[in-house]
């Protein structure tokens, strides 16, 4: 069971306290109505599936409840970094 560092609690906690919330750094367009079908499709459906470094969101759902971002290696399952929502991409 992986240990995950919550950047809000500033503690490493077991993964069962967390829930994965999909790929990170996909901002909702500010004006969805102005999006073309292709742009909206890309926002809605197109996701990365990298072998290696992956930016993803997690929620400390059974802890502080906050969403945060993480860089995880999909091969080793090791977390390279976790950081607060809104902070720049690592």
């Amino acid at each position: 069971m992986i240990l995950i560092h919550c950047p809000y609690c500033d503690e490493k906690r077991p993964e069962i306290e967390f829930a994965n919330a999909g790929q990170a750094h996909i901002a909702r367009p500010l004006d969805p109505s102005g999006q073309t079908d292709a742009e909206w499709e890309a926002y809605l459906f197109i996701r990365a599936n990298p072998r290696g470094r992956h930016h993803e969101r997690w929620r400390h759902v059974h802890g502080c409840g906050r969403f945060f971002n993480a860089v995880r290696d999909t091969v080793t399952d090791k977390f390279e970094a976790t950081y607060k929502a809104g902070e720049p991409r690592r």
Binding site: A21, R59, G65, R66, F67, A85, G86
Partner: peptide, 13 residues
């Protein structure tokens, strides 16, 4: 509640 928290925390903080 999870969905609402998601939008509130990450899209419209």
């Amino acid at each position: 509640l999870n969905m609402m928290e998601d939008y509130l925390q990450t899209e419209w903080p």
